[in-house]
Each structure stands twice: as C-alpha cells, then as structure tokens.
Amino acid sequence: MSTLNPDTALIALIDRISLADEKALRELYELTSPKLYGVAVRVVTNREWAEDVLQEAFINIWRIAGDYKATLSPPMAWMALVVRSRGLDFLRRRASERADKMQELDDVISDTVAGDSPNPMDTAQASQQAKALHNCLSLLDNKQREVVSLAYMRDMSHNELAAQLKLPLGTVKTWIRRGLEQLRGCMAKLA
C-alpha cells in the first residue's frame, strides 16, 4: 500500500467495508472521524446533534460502501458529502427547534463575516482536489469565503443567508457572485 497518497489507504478501507468488515469500519472511523465530525458541526452547528449526524453517516457509509467506487470521487470528499447529506436531513427533521440551539455557533460565524477574521479552513486529510480549491479560496476575502462555504455546507439560498447573517440581500448576492468569479478564474489557471 502506498504511503504517498492517503487516499489509497482510505479507498482500501472502504473496499473492505463493502465486504462487511467491521474492523475496517473501526479503522476508517479512527482515521476520519475528527474531520467528518468537523463537517457535521459545521452543518448542524450543535455538537450534540453533530454526534448524531456522525453516527448516522457512519452507519450510512457501512451500508453503501459498495457504491463508493462508481462515484470516482476522492474518498474524503465522498465521505464528507455523506456527512453533509445526513446533516441536512437532520436539520430538515429538526427545523422547528433549530433556531435557538443554532444561535451559539452562528454568532461565531456572524463574527467571522462581520469582522473579517481569518476563517478556519483546514487541509489536513483533504484530497489533492480540495487542496487546489483551498488555494483558490484563500485568495477570497474572508467574508466572501465564509458566505460561499456556508451556502454550500448548509444548502442555503441567498435569502436564507441574508436572514441568517443579518446582511442585505444585495450584499450576499454580490459577495457570492464575486467569490465564484474569482474561484472560476483561479481554478481555470490550475486546471
């Protein structure tokens, strides 16, 4: 097994999981749960809920590991999307009680957007593709990057973002449009 590419090890584990290898699931959990828990926290913004989401995501990965190969995605991207989907499902189920519990972490996000403080992107364990995107995202203003990241992670519309971040709708639309334009130009150079 190659040690150069961490994807190789993850793919081998997902392969074994598709054959119902419980030990492989444990290894995968040990390798990826901090990253994937981070994804869950970002989507549902409540640590306890994020643990439920992480649990559901791993049960999901256990059941659908056989489908992974067909996606042609880097393994961490695939798993992160499973977590995001389970997180979004969770939010839909809990829509009614979500408002107050999400407050705490959303204040942190509002601060990031308002104060232009550095935003904590993390390339640990990320695929090559994600590292390329990270390089381009780093060129954006912190607030643009945060709004783009939030729009994707929580599947939020312009209106929802404006309400959430207490910003004018036009501002949100402009940030996202410019953010995507910059990303497009940057990614074109890398490709």
Binding site: E51, W78, S127, L137
Partner: peptide, 23 residues
C-alpha cells in the same frame, strides 16, 4: 466535484467516545 471539496476543508473537531460505541 469542486464544491464537494468545500466539505473536505472544514476544520476538525473531536467527537465524544460514545459515538463509536453507538455505531
């Protein structure tokens, strides 16, 4: 594919140990 990488770039956090037990 590119947007999926946004999910990969989220900061890490430590779940409590009970999560693995439940899984």
């Amino acid at each position: 594919g590119r947007m999926a990488s946004v999910a990969e770039l989220q900061p890490q956090a430590a779940p409590s140990e009970v999560v693995w037990k439940r899984i």
